[in-house]
Design a protein around this nucleic acid. Structure first.
Lengths: 236, 236
DNA sequence: AAGTGGTCTAGACCACATA
DNA sequence: ATGTGGTCTAGACCACTTC
């Protein structure tokens, strides 16, 4: 049986998206939702916590829960942060075109060893990929993955979604990502790969990803064209 | 009385930071923590949820809860996302130097009206500030605030923390921020203000902030030098 | 089979908002 | 004074991991 709190959260999220619950409007009270969905108070509360984290509603003690009035042009619905990992993986699967520019196994050194928390010299895949998400958007990714964690990785897998290979192929699940974000100039190579005019900077996303069994499985540095895309997040 | 779940979460966070619970180590089980702290299971669970959201631990059903092994050089402890708003406000209070470059009341137009969800022509403060956080780090902020929400704002307030003025001075509390992040080149003015060499890009953070009563109180665009700083976040 | 975290319940009391 | 969300409890059962 699907989780009750997610069922409730997703039903209300749908109502918000479809305009049944317009911006600024007050949602039913916790007790009313308990009745409507036939669940306990704590379950409704957990559903509301999910909606609150995702930035859809704002809870006001003593008053009620209200639909946030956000500018649709800065909509967070497709944001990386709002999405669950499976949804992210699904999107990655929709990446139109992925070229694997480099695929090799090397010994981890310096920053890569530090970020992956492995000893120097530990075998890791070193993968450089060029990906276009829509027509004009692009990103270059530099990824390092310990061979021990994902054996049998091939250049072909890398052209698909790595996440999908790890989740579907190996039965592991991705749990969390720690990101560090800056603005940098692309290298000359990257300028060519991404077809960037002079003086167009890229967003650098430096990230490590954990599996739900606690192992650190990936260190990546992404350089992304942000002329047609932006990184979105909600903080509460 | 302080909140129990926060007391527990903060005590364990401290133990993690101080090395009492080293990376990779298993925390006591939920039931053991219930006994240790003399609280219920649901309270311990809420505390663990907090630590998990903040990126300190990883929970493994059927196995236990473990301290994440993160690279200290990419530590998230000071991250904007991990911090509570009061903590953020405290930090903003530590901003060494704030120069108010512009302070006026204008009628909202175009993008500002859209983001603030007010009609065109609605009076808003328009504030441009130059801030240095440490010695070498700097950011330029362009902020718009509806006059109706924060009456009596002065140039002097703007030189201090706006958040502090809103929270302490007006008794309002800040609830959440929606951010959209990209890489851009600074304007010529900004290059001078931030003392940026040629060809150094800045991080553009486009954000709206909500009060806990649900009102949208601020729209800001920040241009930030990221040579010595990065925007950090954890996604679960 | 035993242990551990995840979900869910019913119910109590509190803090805050609104009138 | 009333209504609303926030915290907390005790306890049940489930799903998954580990032995």
């Amino acid at each position: 049986m699907p989780l009750k709190y997610l069922t409730v959260a997703e039903d209300i999220e749908r109502k918000i998206r479809e305009g049944v619950c317009p911006p600024q409007s007050k949602l039913p009270t916790t007790d009313e939702l308990c009745e409507q969905y036939g669940v306990s108070r704590i379950t409704v509360r957990k559903a509301m916590d999910v909606l609150s984290e995702r930035g859809f509603v704002i809870k006001r003690r003593g008053s009620g829960t209200y639909v946030k009035d956000i500018d649709p042009s800065s909509d967070d619905s497709e944001s990386q942060v709002v999405e669950s990992y499976s949804a992210t993986a699904r999107h990655e699967g929709h990446v139109a075109d992925t070229q694997v520019l480099e695929f090799s196994v090397i010994g981890a050194t310096g920053r890569v060893a530090e970020r992956l928390r492995v000893g120097e010299g530990t075998p890791v895949y070193s993968i450089v990929r060029l990906r276009s998400v829509n027509d004009s958007q692009g990103l270059v990714s530099y990824t390092w993955i310990p061979v021990a964690i994902v054996p049998n990785l091939t250049k072909r897998n890398a052209a698909d979604s790595l996440y999908r290979h790890v989740e579907v192929g190996l039965g592991l699940t991705v749990s969390s990502t720690h990101r560090s974000i800056r603005a940098v100039m692309p290298t000359l190579e990257e300028q060519v790969w991404l077809r960037l005019p002079e003086d167009v900077p890229v967003l650098e996303i430096d990230q490590v990803t954990f599996l739900s069994d606690g192992r650190l499985f990936e260190y990546s540095v992404l350089h992304r064209d942000t002329r047609d895309w932006s990184f979105k997040c909600v903080n509460t």
